[in-house]
């Protein structure tokens, strides 16, 4: 991702760049440590592997970042992914053309996001609680629909697409790259992006200034729902099956990545580039520890420590910046 091309508004962007630079520095540090500890870490196949492993979390985290910037949170992303995965898979197995089934699966994610957004924007309910409810609701729908059993037998052409690559770069990585550029454009170049930051920064002031607050919130959750569906499609393509239990705890990884990347859970601030680096940091950490044969329990421990250390550094530096 090329972010140095941004050239307008130097001081504010340089502040965001300052924050992004910190995230990149963290990534370099982690990579350097693993490069010394394991000889296979810093090889092209392994680095591509890290990107591929991070792609699903990155996909979720992009939508999550927009939601967080607009002052909300979306805890329901995992179950939304599961629901669109099983319904999309069922359609493919039933013979619905693959492109149509993909669109339908994404539409389901958008619909779930719309329901979340409607309850929050029109119903005036708290995002945390609404999406916590959604977390159970959508999971239950996925389980009820499948009776708890995975759906097998996805068409080969679909699997070939998600498992393929272009010039050696895995397709999921390319898909996420395209989505990330789009999310960056939306956030930094469109009125909607400006509205996300305004609504998240000060909803009342945004309303007085004539910002369509309701539509803005709604858009954020719908985008998040769509991103969850795309992540689900990437996963079921790779596995060849759609499990109703997929996506468990995805929301936490996505929130962690966004926070490491500089998104403020108070809303109004965040960076698409930072979130991507955050995802890669988490991915690299897991990959490196696995290469070193570190037990999974300690991987969890390391993840927790990284998140808290990142937040402490953030606090210490942003305090000085005001």
């Amino acid at each position: 991702m090329n972010t140095t091309a941004r050239n307008a508004a130097p001081p504010l962007l340089s502040r965001i760049r300052f924050r992004d630079a910190g995230t990149v520095l963290g990534l370099i540090l982690i990579c350097a440590i693993f490069a010394v500890l394991t000889p296979t870490f810093l090889t092209v196949p392994n680095l591509l592997n890290i990107l591929q492993q991070s792609s699903i979390n990155a996909c979720i985290a992009l939508g999550m970042t927009l939601v967080i910037i607009s002052g909300g949170i979306d805890l329901s992303v995992g179950p939304v992914a599961a629901l669109s995965a099983v319904l999309g898979a069922a359609m493919m197995v039933a013979g619905v053309p693959v492109p149509l089934a993909i669109l339908a699966a994404i539409a389901i994610g958008v619909a779930c996001g719309f329901l979340n957004g409607a309850l929050i924007a029109w119903g005036g309910l708290q995002p945390f609680i609404v999406t916590l409810g959604g977390l159970s609701l959508y999971r239950a729908l996925a389980l009820i629909y499948t009776g708890g059993t995975p759906i097998f037998g996805l068409p080969a052409e679909f699997r070939a697409f998600t498992n393929g690559n272009m010039m050696g770069i895995p397709n999921p990585v390319l898909i996420v790259a395209v989505l990330a550029v789009s999310a960056w454009v939306v956030l930094n170049k469109t009125p909607l992006g400006e509205y996300f930051m305004a609504v998240g920064g000060n909803p009342e002031a945004a309303r007085v200034a004539g910002v369509p607050v309701t539509l803005t919130k709604l858009s954020a959750y719908m985008i998040s729902g769509a991103m969850a569906s795309v992540a689900a499609l990437i996963l079921i393509g790779r596995l060849g099956a759609a499990e109703p239990t997929l996506g468990t705890l995805w929301e936490l990884d996505a929130i962690a990545a966004a926070a490491i990347g500089g998104a403020s859970l108070m809303g109004g601030r965040g960076s698409i580039f930072g979130t991507l680096i955050g995802c890669i940091i988490l991915g690299a950490l897991r990959n490196g520890l696995t290469l070193m044969n570190v037990q999974a329990f300690y991987q969890l421990l390391a993840t927790g420590i990284i998140i808290i250390v990142a937040m402490l550094i953030d606090r210490a530096t942003s305090g000085k910046q005001g």
Partner: peptide, 24 residues
Amino acid sequence: KRDGIIRHRPITSNVGLAAMHHFS
């Protein structure tokens, strides 16, 4: 502070907020 400004955003964003369609 409560009803007027978006604190972290630059003057440009705050000035343009009510007229984003003019500038797009």
